[in-house]
């Protein structure tokens, strides 16, 4: 509360986004984000029978960049801040994290396609490179992830 001064009026409202309907007061339904994750935000591997953790070395800068992308907490600020209501920062964060790592690279193209398709289906808007999302993101997820997602998506579409 140190940001606020004596006598101030603080306005508090829920995320305003078509894809996040209000449930009550400040509580919104962010289930759309879970649905996007269910469409592709994973590596298709079952429990057990996987290689030793050090079997595939990963360059430290790559691991660090994947970690930065993985910091996304799925809060929804990006879609709420965007004037188009786009979820690109959220989707690109997960796509990036997994595309950067060898374990996720195998499905990177399919993942990008599936998650973007789901995002569109759920009513999120289009990205017009405003950058409001990254400005609001509490975990400082970078716009560079969106660029990477676009590349993955284009290359996937190109291969089709």
């Amino acid at each position: 509360m140190r940001k606020f001064k004596d006598g101030e009026t603080i306005t508090v409202e829920p995320w305003r986004s078509r894809a996040f309907p209000v449930i009550k007061d400040l509580m919104v339904d962010r289930g759309a984000y879970d649905k996007i994750m269910q469409a592709g935000g994973f590596v298709s591997v079952n429990t057990g029978g996987v290689p030793d953790a050090n079997a595939i070395p990963i360059p430290k800068p790559v691991a660090d960049e994947a970690m930065d992308a993985a910091s996304c907490i799925g809060c929804g600020a990006c879609a709420a801040a965007c004037k188009n209501g786009s979820a690109m920062l959220f989707v690109s964060a997960k796509v990036s994290q997994l595309a950067l790592l060898p374990q996720g690279k195998i499905e990177a193209a399919a993942r990008a396609k599936a998650m973007v398709a789901k995002m569109d289906e759920l009513g999120f808007g289009n990205c017009t490179n405003t950058g409001a999302c990254a400005a609001e993101c509490p975990k400082s997820v970078s716009l560079a992830n969106i660029a990477r997602l676009n590349r993955e998506f284009l290359s996937a579409k190109f291969k089709d």
Partner: peptide, 17 residues
């Protein structure tokens, strides 16, 4: 996660005097 407390899920905050 206190770091996200200042930008808590489900809220946007605007100030006005």
């Amino acid at each position: 996660r206190p770091a996200s407390c200042t930008c808590v899920s489900s809220k946007t905050v605007r100030r006005s005097l």
